[in-house]
């Protein structure tokens, strides 16, 4: 670490300008908006924390959405990361099939979330979709998928894993390239098994990439919106009503920017808290 205000600021300045202007200013406006309420004519006035207290103590849907969002994230995060990591480990070495499989795993990521949602809504059609075609082929009973309060949220998880695992695999692949070959050679001489090498060399030296994927993936998943908007509209019976969808409805349908911003600010808080733990856990601290 080099102690230099001048050099440090020189390198971060361009990014600082861009982020400050196009991200921090609008985010600031949005957070301040959560302390205000707007009449339908567009006049807005300061209300302090009223939007928050309403959400916490009176709003009939907030807590339901809060728990659903939490459960969804707690399941989908580790699942995606585990699958992405396994895929990256399997495809790290250059063999004749490596390129092919990497590209196949990456395919779903090349389709936007909106289009992926449309595709899966028809693949998982409760009566005639491709997925039910598979089930009946193997003699299994057809499933309602998104049309069932018990299954809809897990279908969202499934959809997200399908779409995102290949994406996060890419980051692990990049991170794996930073691990020096010499360590594996040394381990080979000691006769270490593949599992030992993975556990003792790969995973510890992947911690910084791991921290990155963990934090970024957490943020992405807490902000899941497109499949809810396109497929379930929060249903059936509120079972997929993620917080982002609640916020969206407030912002663009109910014209209630205060509530919308309060929800996204709460989400920001939750994501930050999770990130803090994730940084701690991976020991890839905030400060090295």
């Amino acid at each position: 670490m080099f102690r230099s205000n001048r050099a440090g600021w020189f390198f971060i300045l361009p990014a600082f300008v861009f982020l400050g202007l196009f991200k921090i200013v609008p985010i600031g406006v949005s957070v301040l908006e959560s302390l205000r309420q707007t009449t339908y004519t567009g006049r807005s006035y300061f209300v302090g924390f009223e939007n928050y207290t309403y959400l916490f103590f009176e709003d009939p849907t907030f807590w339901n959405s809060f728990w659903i969002t939490l459960i969804y994230s707690l399941v989908v995060n580790p699942l995606i990361i585990l699958i992405a990591l396994v895929m990256a480990l399997l495809l790290n070495e250059n063999r004749f099939f490596t390129k092919f499989f990497r590209t196949v795993f990456f395919l779903p990521t090349a389709i936007s979330f909106a289009v992926v949602s449309v595709i899966w809504s028809v693949v998982l059609d409760p009566h005639y979709g491709l997925a039910n075609g598979f089930l009946t082929l193997f003699g299994l009973p057809a499933q309602p998928f998104f049309a069932s309060t018990a299954q809809a949220l897990w279908c969202l998880v499934f959809l997200n894993v399908w779409r995102s695992a290949g994406y996060w695999m890419m980051y692990f692949l990049a991170g794996l390239q930073n691990i020096p070959e010499s360590l594996y050679q040394a381990a080979d001489i000691d006769g270490a098994s593949a599992w030992t090498k993975t556990r003792k060399i790969t995973l510890p030296l992947l911690s910084r990439t791991f921290a990155f994927v963990l934090v970024a993936n957490t943020a992405f998943n807490f902000l899941t919106f497109a499949p809810v908007y396109i497929i379930t509209k929060g249903g059936p019976r509120g079972s997929t009503n993620l917080l982002m969808y609640e916020s969206y409805k407030s912002a663009f349908v109910n014209l209630d920017m205060g509530r919308a911003s309060a929800i996204t600010t709460i989400l920001l808080g939750i994501i930050l808290i999770f990130s803090l733990f994730e940084f701690k856990w991976t020991k890839a601290g905030f400060e090295y």
């Binding site: 049309a147 309060t149 929060g234 249903g235 059936p236 019976r237 349908v253 109910n254």
Partner: peptide
């Protein structure tokens, strides 16, 4: 003037009803 709000909430109610929610309760909510 609040049609889009009215429609969205009613839509969710109809959606719930078709999935089996008791109609009276869903509409009152």
């Amino acid at each position: 003037p609040g049609y889009s709000q009215y429609e969205l909430i009613l839509r969710e109610a109809f959606n719930s009803i078709h999935y089996g929610a008791p109609p009276k309760q869903a509409l009152e909510d």
